[in-house]
Nucleic acid binder design. Sequence first.
DNA 1: CTCTTCTAGGTTGGTAAGGT
DNA 2: ACCTTACCAACCTAGAAGAG
Length: 231
Amino acid sequence: MPWTEITRPHYERRCPRYASDLTDEEWALIAPHMPSANRIGRPRKTDLREIVNALLYMASSGGAWRLLPKDLPPFSTVQKYFYRWREEGLLRTISNSLVMAAREREGREASPTAGVIDSQSVKTTERGGIRGFDAGKKINGRKRHIVVDTIGLMVGLVVHAADIQDRDGAPAVLKSILKRWPWLRHVFADGGYAGPKLKGALRKIGKLVLEIVKRPNGAKGFEVLPRRWVV
DNA sequence: CTCTTCTAGGTTGGTAAGGT
DNA sequence: ACCTTACCAACCTAGAAGAG
């Protein structure tokens, strides 16, 4: 079936169905990364833009796979594309190219040289996937461990069980970054990353300088720290 | 000999069941 | 509820077989 015959129910409408739907402008940035049609095998029937819309719906609503609305492709199809793209690193590739585009739009070098690392514990569903108990935050679930550049765009992400301490999870995150962002040299972190253990692990990874941003003496409760707030 | 039709084997897409 | 796996369907290619 030629691609023009693929049903695209909502494109003619003035307003997008869902707030999370891609605009034409956004799709133009992502479309070049989409896998092209294969010469052999069963031809694709599903519009990949609809797959991306479904993934964005999932991400912004926080719903379960099975709760995906019926006017989007079948959840099992969306799910399969998601797992494949995650496995192939396509999602990361798209994210990185968007980061570079956004940085250039801001008049910066495409590749960041400095970043900020932090983690956040997230309560998960009772079943499925890895999970652990973060005693400090009293949360049973996973940690999303991220590094952002100095304007807050995500350059690195590792998800692990919440019972893993920040300083133990950090090497995996930083290692994953250096492959794709070789110009990153300086990373800011909070007190949770202090200590000789992580310092030693970093020496093995490469030329990364980790700077601990300390809370000012006498600070009470939440206080915005220089450099760190952006993450 | 050329062209068409048939068929087996291979690849990929979509779905559902089942394990954890 | 998440994620993997198995399975069927759709399609392509190449070669065999048949028609003219």
